[in-house]
Simulated scan of single mutants.
Amino acid sequence: MTATPSRYRFLLIQGFRLPADSPYLHRKLDGPKEQTVMDYPILAPMLEGVDWEVHGGALTTYGNWPVENRQEFMHSGLARLPIVREACESGKYNAIVLLGGGEPGFHEACEIARPYGIPVSSCAWSQMHVATMLGSRFGVIDLAESHSSYYANLILQHRMDRRCASIRLIYFPHDRPGCPSGRPLHEERAKARAGERSEAVEEAVEQAVAAIEEDGAEVIFMSCSGLFWLQPFIQSRLDEMGWEVPVLHGYKCAISMAKAMVDMGVTASGLKYPGDRPGRRRRKKLV
Rank of each mutant, 00 (worst) to 15 (best):
W52H: 02
D263A: 01
E196S: 05
C110K: 10
Q35P: 00
S22Q: 02
M264V: 00
I141V: 13
A79K: 01
R137P: 06
R183T: 14
I255Q: 07
G57V: 10
K33P: 05
K284Q: 11
A211T: 08
S198N: 07
W65R: 05
L154I: 06
L99N: 08
V67E: 06
L230C: 11
Y40C: 04
S6D: 06
W243H: 15
W229P: 05
S166Y: 00
A190R: 14
H55I: 01
L134P: 05
G56T: 06
V205T: 07
G242T: 13
D215P: 04
L59V: 11
R17N: 06
R114D: 02
P5V: 10
G91K: 01
R7C: 01
Q207N: 11
A210L: 10
P115I: 08
S269E: 03
V37W: 01
E108D: 12
I42E: 14
A165R: 04
E34Y: 01
L154R: 10
R176Y: 12
Y171T: 13
V130P: 02
L98N: 10
E202W: 00
S236Q: 14
E187C: 08
L12M: 11
S22I: 02
P45F: 03
A87Q: 03
A44N: 04
R114G: 02
G135N: 07
R237Y: 03
W52K: 08
D239F: 06
M160C: 14
E103W: 01
V219Q: 06
A194N: 13
G178S: 03
I42C: 00
C123V: 15
Y93C: 05
P173L: 08
R168W: 06
I170A: 07
E89Q: 13
D276K: 12
L154N: 02
G216D: 03
G102F: 13
L156C: 08
R183I: 07
P5S: 11
D276C: 09
C110E: 08
L143C: 11
E214T: 09
V219H: 10
M264Y: 02
A204Y: 09
A254D: 11
V262I: 00
G15V: 00
G63V: 10
S223Y: 09
E86Y: 02
M222S: 08
G57C: 05
A208H: 06
S126R: 11
C123Y: 01
